[in-house]
Design a protein around this nucleic acid. Structure first.
Lengths: 190, 190
DNA sequence: AAGATAAATGAATAAATATTCATCTAAAGA
DNA sequence: TCTTTAGATGAATATTTATTCATTTATCTT
Protein backbone atom coordinates (compact mmCIF):
# COMPACT_ATOMS: atom_id res chain seq x y z
CA UNK A 1 0.00 0.00 0.00
CA UNK A 2 0.98 3.59 -0.47
CA UNK A 3 1.61 5.45 2.78
CA UNK A 4 0.21 8.82 3.60
CA UNK A 5 2.76 11.54 3.19
CA UNK A 6 2.32 13.46 6.41
CA UNK A 7 4.58 16.17 5.07
CA UNK A 8 1.70 17.15 2.82
CA UNK A 9 -0.19 18.39 5.84
CA UNK A 10 2.45 21.01 6.41
CA UNK A 11 2.37 22.00 2.76
CA UNK A 12 -1.38 22.46 2.97
CA UNK A 13 -0.96 24.53 6.11
CA UNK A 14 1.69 26.68 4.49
CA UNK A 15 -0.44 27.27 1.42
CA UNK A 16 -3.42 28.20 3.55
CA UNK A 17 -1.46 30.68 5.65
CA UNK A 18 0.05 32.31 2.58
CA UNK A 19 -3.36 32.72 0.98
CA UNK A 20 -5.00 34.05 4.12
CA UNK A 21 -2.28 36.65 4.44
CA UNK A 22 -2.91 37.77 0.86
CA UNK A 23 -6.65 37.40 0.58
CA UNK A 24 -8.04 36.95 4.06
CA UNK A 25 -10.10 34.07 5.32
CA UNK A 26 -12.95 35.27 3.14
CA UNK A 27 -10.91 35.10 -0.02
CA UNK A 28 -9.76 31.52 -0.04
CA UNK A 29 -11.26 28.38 -1.53
CA UNK A 30 -10.29 24.74 -1.21
CA UNK A 31 -9.16 24.61 -4.82
CA UNK A 32 -6.95 27.66 -4.33
CA UNK A 33 -5.33 26.00 -1.35
CA UNK A 34 -4.76 22.80 -3.31
CA UNK A 35 -3.34 24.62 -6.30
CA UNK A 36 -1.00 26.71 -4.16
CA UNK A 37 0.23 23.58 -2.38
CA UNK A 38 0.66 21.84 -5.74
CA UNK A 39 -1.97 19.13 -5.37
CA UNK A 40 -5.31 18.24 -6.85
CA UNK A 41 -8.35 19.51 -4.97
CA UNK A 42 -9.34 16.02 -3.86
CA UNK A 43 -6.00 15.44 -2.18
CA UNK A 44 -6.76 18.00 0.49
CA UNK A 45 -9.78 15.89 1.44
CA UNK A 46 -7.55 12.88 2.16
CA UNK A 47 -5.93 14.81 4.97
CA UNK A 48 -8.87 16.91 6.15
CA UNK A 49 -12.53 15.96 6.23
CA UNK A 50 -13.60 19.43 5.14
CA UNK A 51 -12.69 23.06 5.13
CA UNK A 52 -13.74 23.66 8.70
CA UNK A 53 -11.53 20.85 10.01
CA UNK A 54 -8.58 22.27 8.09
CA UNK A 55 -9.08 25.72 9.54
CA UNK A 56 -9.62 24.51 13.10
CA UNK A 57 -6.57 22.22 13.07
CA UNK A 58 -4.38 24.92 11.62
CA UNK A 59 -5.68 27.28 14.27
CA UNK A 60 -4.71 24.83 17.03
CA UNK A 61 -1.26 24.37 15.58
CA UNK A 62 -0.80 28.12 15.27
CA UNK A 63 -1.80 28.72 18.87
CA UNK A 64 0.65 26.06 19.99
CA UNK A 65 3.45 27.54 17.91
CA UNK A 66 2.87 30.92 19.30
CA UNK A 67 2.82 29.88 22.92
CA UNK A 68 5.98 27.84 22.63
CA UNK A 69 7.71 30.73 20.89
CA UNK A 70 6.72 33.19 23.57
CA UNK A 71 8.28 31.15 26.33
CA UNK A 72 11.30 29.71 24.53
CA UNK A 73 14.40 30.08 26.69
CA UNK A 74 12.40 31.75 29.42
CA UNK A 75 13.88 31.11 32.85
CA UNK A 76 11.51 32.21 35.62
CA UNK A 77 14.39 32.32 38.08
CA UNK A 78 16.34 34.99 36.21
CA UNK A 79 16.08 38.65 37.23
CA UNK A 80 12.82 40.29 36.29
CA UNK A 81 14.07 42.59 33.57
CA UNK A 82 16.05 39.79 31.93
CA UNK A 83 13.02 37.50 31.93
CA UNK A 84 10.78 40.26 30.61
CA UNK A 85 13.27 41.06 27.87
CA UNK A 86 13.37 37.40 26.81
CA UNK A 87 9.61 37.18 26.47
CA UNK A 88 9.34 40.54 24.78
CA UNK A 89 11.93 39.62 22.18
CA UNK A 90 10.24 36.27 21.68
CA UNK A 91 6.95 38.05 20.97
CA UNK A 92 8.67 40.19 18.43
CA UNK A 93 10.46 37.26 16.84
CA UNK A 94 7.23 35.28 16.62
CA UNK A 95 5.40 38.19 15.02
CA UNK A 96 8.14 38.56 12.45
CA UNK A 97 8.90 34.94 11.64
CA UNK A 98 5.29 33.76 11.80
CA UNK A 99 3.58 36.83 10.53
CA UNK A 100 1.12 34.85 8.47
CA UNK A 101 0.17 32.73 11.48
CA UNK A 102 -0.46 35.86 13.50
CA UNK A 103 -2.74 37.27 10.81
CA UNK A 104 -4.50 33.92 10.51
CA UNK A 105 -5.17 33.73 14.25
CA UNK A 106 -6.62 37.24 14.26
CA UNK A 107 -8.90 36.45 11.35
CA UNK A 108 -10.05 33.23 12.96
CA UNK A 109 -11.16 35.12 16.05
CA UNK A 110 -13.74 36.87 13.88
CA UNK A 111 -14.92 33.89 11.92
CA UNK A 112 -17.61 31.26 12.18
CA UNK A 113 -14.94 28.56 12.55
CA UNK A 114 -13.72 29.50 16.02
CA UNK A 115 -16.08 29.54 18.98
CA UNK A 116 -16.25 32.06 21.78
CA UNK A 117 -14.98 29.39 24.19
CA UNK A 118 -11.95 28.56 22.10
CA UNK A 119 -11.09 32.23 21.96
CA UNK A 120 -11.29 32.59 25.70
CA UNK A 121 -9.26 29.42 26.31
CA UNK A 122 -6.47 30.95 24.27
CA UNK A 123 -5.93 33.62 26.91
CA UNK A 124 -4.99 31.01 29.50
CA UNK A 125 -1.95 30.11 27.47
CA UNK A 126 -0.32 33.34 28.53
CA UNK A 127 -0.42 32.43 32.23
CA UNK A 128 3.39 32.37 32.67
CA UNK A 129 3.58 35.89 31.28
CA UNK A 130 0.90 37.02 33.68
CA UNK A 131 2.78 35.47 36.59
CA UNK A 132 5.93 37.26 35.55
CA UNK A 133 4.10 40.57 35.50
CA UNK A 134 2.71 39.90 38.97
CA UNK A 135 6.22 39.21 40.17
CA UNK A 136 7.45 42.49 38.69
CA UNK A 137 4.71 44.30 40.57
CA UNK A 138 5.64 42.56 43.83
CA UNK A 139 9.29 43.50 43.34
CA UNK A 140 8.13 47.09 42.78
CA UNK A 141 9.91 47.25 39.45
CA UNK A 142 6.81 48.03 37.41
CA UNK A 143 3.59 49.96 37.88
CA UNK A 144 0.90 48.55 40.16
CA UNK A 145 -1.76 48.28 37.46
CA UNK A 146 -3.90 45.26 36.69
CA UNK A 147 -1.68 42.65 35.02
CA UNK A 148 -4.08 42.41 32.07
CA UNK A 149 -3.63 46.09 31.33
CA UNK A 150 0.13 45.76 31.28
CA UNK A 151 0.05 42.63 29.10
CA UNK A 152 -2.22 44.36 26.62
CA UNK A 153 -0.05 47.40 26.54
CA UNK A 154 3.03 45.34 25.78
CA UNK A 155 1.59 42.92 23.23
CA UNK A 156 -0.44 45.51 21.37
CA UNK A 157 2.51 47.63 20.50
CA UNK A 158 4.64 44.68 19.39
CA UNK A 159 1.99 43.45 17.03
CA UNK A 160 1.07 46.69 15.35
CA UNK A 161 4.69 47.45 14.88
CA UNK A 162 5.43 44.23 13.07
CA UNK A 163 2.36 44.64 10.90
CA UNK A 164 3.47 48.04 9.80
CA UNK A 165 7.00 46.92 9.04
CA UNK A 166 5.82 43.91 7.10
CA UNK A 167 3.41 45.88 4.97
CA UNK A 168 5.97 48.52 4.15
CA UNK A 169 8.89 46.16 3.74
CA UNK A 170 10.79 48.04 6.40
CA UNK A 171 13.79 46.27 7.79
CA UNK A 172 13.52 45.53 11.48
CA UNK A 173 16.97 46.41 12.71
CA UNK A 174 18.44 45.66 16.10
CA UNK A 175 18.39 49.38 16.76
CA UNK A 176 14.67 49.41 16.07
CA UNK A 177 14.07 46.44 18.35
CA UNK A 178 15.96 48.03 21.20
CA UNK A 179 14.17 51.36 20.73
CA UNK A 180 10.81 49.62 20.88
CA UNK A 181 11.79 47.59 23.89
CA UNK A 182 12.94 50.71 25.64
CA UNK A 183 9.60 52.43 25.00
CA UNK A 184 7.72 49.44 26.36
CA UNK A 185 9.91 49.23 29.39
CA UNK A 186 9.71 52.95 30.14
CA UNK A 187 5.95 52.68 29.82
CA UNK A 188 5.52 49.99 32.43
CA UNK A 189 8.35 50.63 34.89
CA UNK A 190 7.60 52.18 38.21
CA UNK B 1 -42.70 58.37 -7.67
CA UNK B 2 -41.36 56.89 -4.52
CA UNK B 3 -38.10 58.46 -3.35
CA UNK B 4 -35.08 56.46 -2.36
CA UNK B 5 -34.76 56.22 1.37
CA UNK B 6 -31.13 57.13 1.89
CA UNK B 7 -31.46 56.16 5.52
CA UNK B 8 -31.51 52.58 4.32
CA UNK B 9 -27.88 52.86 3.32
CA UNK B 10 -26.94 53.43 6.91
CA UNK B 11 -29.05 50.51 8.00
CA UNK B 12 -27.29 48.29 5.49
CA UNK B 13 -23.93 49.55 6.72
CA UNK B 14 -24.89 48.93 10.34
CA UNK B 15 -26.07 45.41 9.57
CA UNK B 16 -22.86 44.66 7.68
CA UNK B 17 -20.63 45.93 10.47
CA UNK B 18 -22.53 43.96 13.08
CA UNK B 19 -22.25 40.77 11.06
CA UNK B 20 -18.57 41.24 10.29
CA UNK B 21 -17.85 41.70 13.97
CA UNK B 22 -19.66 38.45 14.75
CA UNK B 23 -18.70 36.32 11.77
CA UNK B 24 -15.87 38.02 9.97
CA UNK B 25 -15.83 39.10 6.37
CA UNK B 26 -15.74 35.45 5.36
CA UNK B 27 -18.91 34.62 7.20
CA UNK B 28 -21.35 37.05 5.69
CA UNK B 29 -23.68 36.81 2.72
CA UNK B 30 -25.86 39.37 0.99
CA UNK B 31 -29.01 37.70 2.24
CA UNK B 32 -27.73 37.75 5.80
CA UNK B 33 -27.05 41.45 5.49
CA UNK B 34 -30.51 42.09 4.07
CA UNK B 35 -32.22 40.02 6.75
CA UNK B 36 -30.30 41.70 9.55
CA UNK B 37 -31.20 45.13 8.15
CA UNK B 38 -34.81 44.04 7.81
CA UNK B 39 -35.13 44.16 4.02
CA UNK B 40 -35.51 41.74 1.17
CA UNK B 41 -32.32 40.62 -0.49
CA UNK B 42 -33.08 42.51 -3.67
CA UNK B 43 -33.39 45.81 -1.82
CA UNK B 44 -29.69 45.84 -1.08
CA UNK B 45 -29.07 45.80 -4.83
CA UNK B 46 -31.03 49.03 -5.26
CA UNK B 47 -28.45 50.83 -3.18
CA UNK B 48 -25.34 48.90 -4.16
CA UNK B 49 -24.48 47.34 -7.50
CA UNK B 50 -22.96 44.31 -5.85
CA UNK B 51 -21.25 43.00 -2.78
CA UNK B 52 -17.88 44.44 -3.67
CA UNK B 53 -19.29 47.95 -4.06
CA UNK B 54 -20.98 47.66 -0.69
CA UNK B 55 -17.77 46.61 1.03
CA UNK B 56 -15.63 49.24 -0.67
CA UNK B 57 -18.04 52.09 0.07
CA UNK B 58 -18.39 51.03 3.67
CA UNK B 59 -14.62 50.87 3.90
CA UNK B 60 -14.31 54.44 2.62
CA UNK B 61 -16.89 55.67 5.05
CA UNK B 62 -15.18 53.88 7.92
CA UNK B 63 -11.82 55.37 7.06
CA UNK B 64 -13.39 58.81 6.97
CA UNK B 65 -15.10 58.31 10.29
CA UNK B 66 -11.95 57.23 11.89
CA UNK B 67 -9.85 60.10 10.65
CA UNK B 68 -12.37 62.72 11.67
CA UNK B 69 -12.65 61.14 15.09
CA UNK B 70 -8.92 61.12 15.61
CA UNK B 71 -8.61 64.84 15.02
CA UNK B 72 -11.86 66.08 16.56
CA UNK B 73 -11.20 69.08 18.76
CA UNK B 74 -7.51 68.92 18.00
CA UNK B 75 -5.87 72.33 18.17
CA UNK B 76 -2.34 72.28 16.74
CA UNK B 77 -1.52 75.47 18.59
CA UNK B 78 -2.08 74.03 22.07
CA UNK B 79 0.84 72.75 24.15
CA UNK B 80 2.26 69.45 22.95
CA UNK B 81 1.12 67.26 25.79
CA UNK B 82 -2.40 68.68 25.63
CA UNK B 83 -2.60 68.08 21.90
CA UNK B 84 -1.22 64.58 22.26
CA UNK B 85 -3.68 63.81 25.03
CA UNK B 86 -6.57 64.97 22.83
CA UNK B 87 -5.59 62.72 19.95
CA UNK B 88 -4.83 59.79 22.23
CA UNK B 89 -8.21 60.02 23.91
CA UNK B 90 -9.88 60.37 20.50
CA UNK B 91 -8.20 57.15 19.35
CA UNK B 92 -9.47 55.41 22.41
CA UNK B 93 -12.96 56.83 22.00
CA UNK B 94 -13.08 55.81 18.36
CA UNK B 95 -11.94 52.29 19.16
CA UNK B 96 -14.63 51.97 21.80
CA UNK B 97 -17.55 53.66 20.07
CA UNK B 98 -16.79 52.29 16.62
CA UNK B 99 -15.36 48.96 17.58
CA UNK B 100 -17.10 47.17 14.74
CA UNK B 101 -15.74 49.65 12.21
CA UNK B 102 -12.25 49.08 13.51
CA UNK B 103 -12.62 45.33 13.15
CA UNK B 104 -14.09 45.78 9.68
CA UNK B 105 -11.19 47.95 8.52
CA UNK B 106 -8.67 45.41 9.76
CA UNK B 107 -10.45 42.59 7.98
CA UNK B 108 -10.65 44.58 4.77
CA UNK B 109 -6.90 45.04 4.76
CA UNK B 110 -6.58 41.30 4.31
CA UNK B 111 -9.29 40.82 1.75
CA UNK B 112 -9.63 40.74 -2.03
CA UNK B 113 -11.82 43.86 -1.86
CA UNK B 114 -9.16 46.35 -0.83
CA UNK B 115 -6.09 46.92 -2.96
CA UNK B 116 -2.53 47.44 -1.83
CA UNK B 117 -2.73 51.04 -3.00
CA UNK B 118 -5.84 51.81 -1.01
CA UNK B 119 -4.17 50.39 2.07
CA UNK B 120 -1.14 52.56 1.63
CA UNK B 121 -3.23 55.68 0.95
CA UNK B 122 -4.87 55.17 4.31
CA UNK B 123 -1.62 55.92 6.08
CA UNK B 124 -1.54 59.45 4.68
CA UNK B 125 -4.66 60.28 6.61
CA UNK B 126 -2.66 60.32 9.79
CA UNK B 127 -0.40 63.13 8.60
CA UNK B 128 -1.49 65.62 11.30
CA UNK B 129 -0.60 63.09 13.97
CA UNK B 130 2.81 62.58 12.38
CA UNK B 131 3.39 66.33 12.33
CA UNK B 132 2.51 66.56 15.98
CA UNK B 133 5.00 63.83 16.82
CA UNK B 134 7.70 65.66 14.87
CA UNK B 135 6.91 68.79 16.82
CA UNK B 136 7.24 66.91 20.11
CA UNK B 137 10.64 65.67 19.00
CA UNK B 138 11.73 69.18 18.07
CA UNK B 139 10.59 70.48 21.45
CA UNK B 140 12.63 67.68 23.04
CA UNK B 141 9.62 66.44 24.95
CA UNK B 142 9.66 62.95 23.47
CA UNK B 143 12.27 60.47 22.30
CA UNK B 144 14.12 61.14 19.06
CA UNK B 145 12.92 57.98 17.30
CA UNK B 146 11.43 57.75 13.83
CA UNK B 147 7.91 59.20 14.00
CA UNK B 148 6.45 56.01 12.51
CA UNK B 149 7.84 53.98 15.35
CA UNK B 150 6.25 56.23 17.93
CA UNK B 151 2.91 56.31 16.13
CA UNK B 152 2.87 52.53 15.95
CA UNK B 153 3.76 52.21 19.56
CA UNK B 154 0.91 54.47 20.58
CA UNK B 155 -1.82 53.16 18.30
CA UNK B 156 -1.00 49.51 18.77
CA UNK B 157 -1.50 49.56 22.49
CA UNK B 158 -4.77 51.50 22.26
CA UNK B 159 -6.25 49.05 19.82
CA UNK B 160 -5.33 45.81 21.53
CA UNK B 161 -6.56 47.18 24.77
CA UNK B 162 -9.99 48.03 23.44
CA UNK B 163 -10.26 44.65 21.76
CA UNK B 164 -9.55 42.88 24.98
CA UNK B 165 -12.03 44.95 26.96
CA UNK B 166 -14.74 44.49 24.38
CA UNK B 167 -14.33 40.74 24.19
CA UNK B 168 -14.36 40.36 27.94
CA UNK B 169 -17.06 42.92 28.59
CA UNK B 170 -14.74 44.84 30.87
CA UNK B 171 -15.78 48.33 31.72
CA UNK B 172 -13.36 50.95 30.50
CA UNK B 173 -13.21 53.29 33.46
CA UNK B 174 -11.65 56.73 33.56
CA UNK B 175 -9.02 55.32 35.88
CA UNK B 176 -8.18 52.73 33.26
CA UNK B 177 -7.96 55.34 30.53
CA UNK B 178 -5.63 57.49 32.56
CA UNK B 179 -3.45 54.53 33.51
CA UNK B 180 -3.09 53.56 29.86
CA UNK B 181 -2.39 57.10 28.81
CA UNK B 182 0.27 57.37 31.46
CA UNK B 183 1.99 54.19 30.23
CA UNK B 184 1.98 55.50 26.66
CA UNK B 185 3.29 58.84 27.72
CA UNK B 186 6.04 57.39 29.92
CA UNK B 187 7.01 55.18 27.00
CA UNK B 188 7.56 57.97 24.54
CA UNK B 189 8.72 60.89 26.69
CA UNK B 190 12.32 61.87 26.68
C1' DA C 1 7.63 -9.60 -10.01
C1' DA C 2 2.80 -9.66 -8.95
C1' DG C 3 -0.88 -8.54 -6.01
C1' DA C 4 -2.96 -5.61 -2.67
C1' DT C 5 -3.91 -1.41 -0.72
C1' DA C 6 -4.39 3.25 -0.13
C1' DA C 7 -3.00 7.79 -1.98
C1' DA C 8 -3.65 11.06 -5.82
C1' DT C 9 -6.28 12.93 -9.49
C1' DG C 10 -9.66 16.05 -11.47
C1' DA C 11 -14.01 15.89 -13.65
C1' DA C 12 -18.73 15.50 -11.95
C1' DT C 13 -22.13 16.68 -8.48
C1' DA C 14 -24.04 19.02 -4.59
C1' DA C 15 -24.52 23.00 -1.92
C1' DA C 16 -24.17 27.69 -1.03
C1' DT C 17 -24.27 32.32 -2.54
C1' DA C 18 -24.69 36.30 -5.63
C1' DT C 19 -27.55 38.49 -8.64
C1' DT C 20 -31.65 39.30 -11.50
C1' DC C 21 -36.37 40.23 -12.62
C1' DA C 22 -41.42 39.92 -12.96
C1' DT C 23 -44.56 41.60 -9.86
C1' DC C 24 -46.25 44.29 -6.35
C1' DT C 25 -46.34 48.63 -3.45
C1' DA C 26 -46.06 53.45 -2.01
C1' DA C 27 -45.35 58.19 -2.74
C1' DA C 28 -45.42 62.48 -5.79
C1' DG C 29 -47.50 65.27 -8.99
C1' DA C 30 -51.38 66.31 -12.08
C1' DT D 1 -58.48 60.87 -7.05
C1' DC D 2 -55.79 58.94 -10.64
C1' DT D 3 -51.52 58.21 -12.98
C1' DT D 4 -46.94 57.67 -13.07
C1' DT D 5 -42.64 56.33 -11.48
C1' DA D 6 -39.33 54.24 -8.92
C1' DG D 7 -38.63 51.54 -4.70
C1' DA D 8 -39.44 46.91 -2.50
C1' DT D 9 -40.11 42.07 -2.72
C1' DG D 10 -38.53 37.30 -2.85
C1' DA D 11 -38.69 33.48 -5.90
C1' DA D 12 -35.95 32.10 -9.85
C1' DT D 13 -31.47 31.91 -12.13
C1' DA D 14 -26.55 32.22 -12.53
C1' DT D 15 -22.32 31.67 -10.49
C1' DT D 16 -19.12 30.14 -7.36
C1' DT D 17 -17.38 26.86 -4.21
C1' DA D 18 -17.32 22.56 -1.42
C1' DT D 19 -17.30 17.88 -1.70
C1' DT D 20 -17.48 13.31 -3.85
C1' DC D 21 -16.03 9.41 -6.56
C1' DA D 22 -14.57 6.48 -10.46
C1' DT D 23 -10.14 5.95 -12.16
C1' DT D 24 -5.20 6.02 -12.12
C1' DT D 25 -0.75 5.71 -9.76
C1' DA D 26 2.66 4.67 -6.26
C1' DT D 27 4.46 1.89 -2.71
C1' DC D 28 4.52 -1.98 0.42
C1' DT D 29 4.36 -7.03 1.20
C1' DT D 30 5.06 -11.63 -0.11
Amino acid sequence: MKPKDEGKIDEIYAATLALVKEQGLSGITMSMIARKAGFATGTVYIYFANKEELIVKLFDKSINDYTSYYFAGYDPSSPFKVAFHTIWMNMLRYSIEHFDEMVFIEQCFHSPFISEDTRKATKDRLLPFRELIERGKKEKLIKQHDASWIMLFVRGSVRDLVKHCTYHQLKITDEFKEAMFEMCWDGIRD
